[in-house]
Design a protein around this nucleic acid. Sequence first.
DNA 1: GAAGTTATCTACAACGCTTGTTGAAAAACA
DNA 2: TGTTTTTCAACAAGCGTTGTAGATAACTTC
Lengths: 152, 152
Amino acid sequence: MKTPEELTELFRSTGRKVTAQRQCIFRVLHGDVTHPSAEAVHAVASREMETISLKTVYQTLHDLAELGEIVSLDVGTGMTRFDPNVDDPHHHLVCRECGRVRDLVAVFPELQIPKGAELGFQVGSAEIVFRGLCPECQPATRTGRVPARAGK
Amino acid sequence: MKTPEELTELFRSTGRKVTAQRQCIFRVLHGDVTHPSAEAVHAVASREMETISLKTVYQTLHDLAELGEIVSLDVGTGMTRFDPNVDDPHHHLVCRECGRVRDLVAVFPELQIPKGAELGFQVGSAEIVFRGLCPECQPATRTGRVPARAGK
DNA sequence: GAAGTTATCTACAACGCTTGTTGAAAAACA
DNA sequence: TGTTTTTCAACAAGCGTTGTAGATAACTTC
Ligand SMILES: [Mn+2]
Ligand SMILES: [Mn+2]
Ligand SMILES: [Zn+2]
Ligand SMILES: [Zn+2]
């Protein structure tokens, strides 16, 4: 996604108003690699603006998604996750234990569907979700660390 | 998944009671290839037993999942989908328009993660979701059919 | 078979995440 | 600055799903 300054420009040029709340959300998302949920974005933004509402966060996330600056993901963790990385094509690693999501920047060009197996579907895209255990959730024997459940 | 008769046996042998409602759900699921939601199962079961409750359907689906006879899927259609096909490893085609889910019975053995790209994740499984348009939702020029939004 | 024990059933309410609605406040335009 | 238009925050409601309760039915022991 673009920088907070560029997003300010983009919002204005697409007829959207620029508010302190929105700019705060731009800053929170910029450089975030954790694929935060709306609540996670709200939690961080609240540290800067105590009164910002969750609804405003959802609204702005949807605007950004509409503009193609972020993408919303459903990886089965119960909440929609938002991904500011829209430039490199990539897939995702999801922790079964704590729900952490990380990018897997690898292309699998050989993902060809065998002829006839599409059953008439017109296939447009393929998403791969790798499930497993993140470093923090692996048994201590392997990392020496203690697993910690991530709060929301 | 097993036949309704075998499931009856399995339920009894694992200390679960067998009721008419559960056997009705066994029959509904047997041979179903649509990856129904709990509500869809309930709708079909209700045709046979008008009073069966949605809660009972959820309960039985969870029992079957616990026994490994079905698997629950989250493919981003808003509802958990249940898959009685647990024997062939396969992936899924999901219609962006109506939410239909179909099996794609193809193995992709070359799904190797580049060294170092796992970022310390201990990867256990990979699911591929192919998104596109099912035959019923494609423009008429391609199939001659009229797209229809599927009810839930 | 009948009684007693245990699990299940239905109806209802509540949950977590997300979205609709409202009047008040703020941004854009001139 | 004044006018118009959009957004904000608070509240409530929507959705799919799960918890709770007493009534009911299935399994066990006689
Ligand atoms: Mn990503
Ligand atoms: Mn399937
Ligand atoms: Zn983890
Ligand atoms: Zn379709």
